[in-house]
Design a protein around this nucleic acid. Structure first.
Lengths: 179, 179
DNA sequence: GAGTACATGTAATTAGTTACATGATTGA
DNA sequence: TCAATCATGTAACTAATTACATGTACTC
């Protein structure tokens, strides 16, 4: 499905990016809530997108000699991105979740062992939820207007917080069964 | 991390399975909420587990000549599974979500286009939630006891329903911003 | 006799991770 | 000058999907 292609095109559609910048974007607070790719996947994909004529780059020099490639989208790339963007897809498989897999087999554990695992997961999700909520608070005084890129950030962050809270609720429910 | 290994060992730890049965289990109502693998991945993994001495199989004949391999766990397999089961892992990356990726870039769409996508997703998640809830209702009169395999089914199903409801809530919230 | 489900595999490709490899810039 | 960050790539490997390939058993 070439999803990485569209994740990259989506960014480059907004403004020019270097491979390094794309890599950082995938690691940042907002995007990491629904996408991730390492630089070893990004650089080859940028080469492929260049060959396909979906992006082009300008070489700029930073300091004395360090070169960087700044990629921008082409008309072709823009058309293909817009077509992908307005696609209504089927749900597909639920993503893998190792902790749910473990929970499914939890009858093999001692009660106290599984309780310990649940508490540990709860702490981790709680820390993540707090981090996301704090970022939401400090980044947004109010909800951004429709049509702005900021509304995308806002919606995704909100969705991530809701997801973490629900995961915590589920862990607490499981915990209650075992106590 | 060899997670497929442990997903398979977890099943075979309960009772003997053929590759075909494992394949069906991954596709069923409960397991498909947190794990999936196709037969083309399962058969080679069963071979590898046999080589490693984690499982063994007996060949039985169905009907006139159709052979099937019934795998059971070994002591080594059991020990390795138990060690994995009681492991407290870090959270790791949030799984990829194509619809959230699209939503992140939704500012590129016409209002009506994104609204249409949201409504369509909502329908799909709603249908899934209904299916899961109905199954939960018909499968469980009451909550199974701690220590039974059925409690694993119950917890996972409950978690999946909660996840679907939260996804729907998020979609409705996004929709409200665009209306 | 036909169609569906049972049953087991391999081959080719794509996606993603980990490790290897190198070098420049910036700020303390 | 040292450390962190910027910057770009490739190689080897693991995970997963799609397609190829074959044949049996059961039910209508």
């Amino acid at each position: 499905m070439r999803e990485l292609k569209y994740a990259i095109l989506g960014l480059v559609n907004r403004k020019p990016y270097t491979g390094y910048d794309i890599s950082r974007e995938f690691g940042d607070l907002v995007m990491s809530n629904f996408w991730h790719a390492r630089h070893s996947q990004i650089y080859p994909e940028l080469q492929r997108l260049t060959e396909e004529g979906c992006v082009e780059f300008d070489v700029t020099v930073q300091g004395q000699k360090m070169e960087k490639k700044c990629y921008h989208i082409t008309d072709k790339g823009h058309r293909e991105f817009m077509e992908w963007l307005n696609t209504d897809e089927e749900l597909g498989f639920t993503p893998k979740d190792v902790f749910r897999l473990r929970s499914y087999f939890a009858d093999g554990l001692e009660r106290a062992e599984y309780v310990q695992l649940l508490k540990s997961q709860l702490e981790k999700h709680s820390a993540k939820e707090k981090y996301l909520s704090d970022s939401m608070q400090s980044s947004f005084q109010e909800r951004p207007a429709v049509g702005t890129a900021q509304l995308g950030d806002y919606m995704v962050l909100e969705g991530a917080i809701m997801r973490e809270r629900t995961y915590m609720e589920w862990l607490e429910k499981c915990l209650s069964y075992y106590l």
